[in-house]
Amino acid sequence: MFDKLEQVKHLPISFGDIARYVIVPGDPNRVPIISELLDDVQHQGQNREFNAARGKYKDVDVSVVSTGIGCPSTAIAVEELSHIGAEVFIRIGTSGSVDGSAQKGDIFIATAAVRDDGTSKQYIPIEFPALADIEVVDSLIKASEALNVPTKVGVCQSKDSFFGEVEPERMPVSEYLDMKWKAWQRGGVGASEMEAATLFTLSSIFGLHSGGIFAVETHDKETIHKITKIVLESIYYMEKGAINA
């Protein structure tokens, strides 16, 4: 899809420094935590909110690169990562709960995202669905089953305003926010986060592969490690042949 580039503008890494599989957390501080589960880890540096590391899981080459908070910086990360050779993106993140189907402490695998973001609309009109890659979702589900970790599977919402979700009453558009939130609750949205819609939309239109897995209202290291194990195992499944890019 893209011309491969030797250098990119924002990332601390360039062509040749990246694995085909990239784990993309939002938080740069989560990159070393996720990397603890890799062998032969190389910390490649940080520029702005983009922190990069690379290592191996069962001999499969895996990168970990943070996107920063929100869809604007996620779009930059996805574009530049794909320019330098990445093809499969799995977001590890934290989320809020929406309709109650997923609650505090649950692990949520997203099949698709509500495009309550501004970035993805600058790529393709809003009617287009933000879908996770079916093979990535399938690998995540199979990996969590193999590891005996219960998960919830469903649609997540990606928003641009964090405080619009947690304190909608103080926003000038509070009624609009309330009305939409009620629709997401009734329509079956399980989790709320801030990057998946753009990650899924861009991957879909550029012929890349992406998925997302979230800790619902939980941020501790133990949960992040539990999720990371699922993601690494899913990458191993994909590398063994489930995904054909």
């Binding site: 099949t111 809003i126 009617e127 669905p129 879908l131 649609v155 629709a183």
Partner: peptide, 21 residues
């Protein structure tokens, strides 16, 4: 796997940002 919502009915159920999946 999903559909582009270039139609008028589904928006009388759910706002347009919701994915048809």
């Amino acid at each position: 796997t999903g559909a582009v919502r270039y139609e008028g009915t589904s928006i009388q159920y759910m706002p347009i940002e919701f994915p048809a999946v």
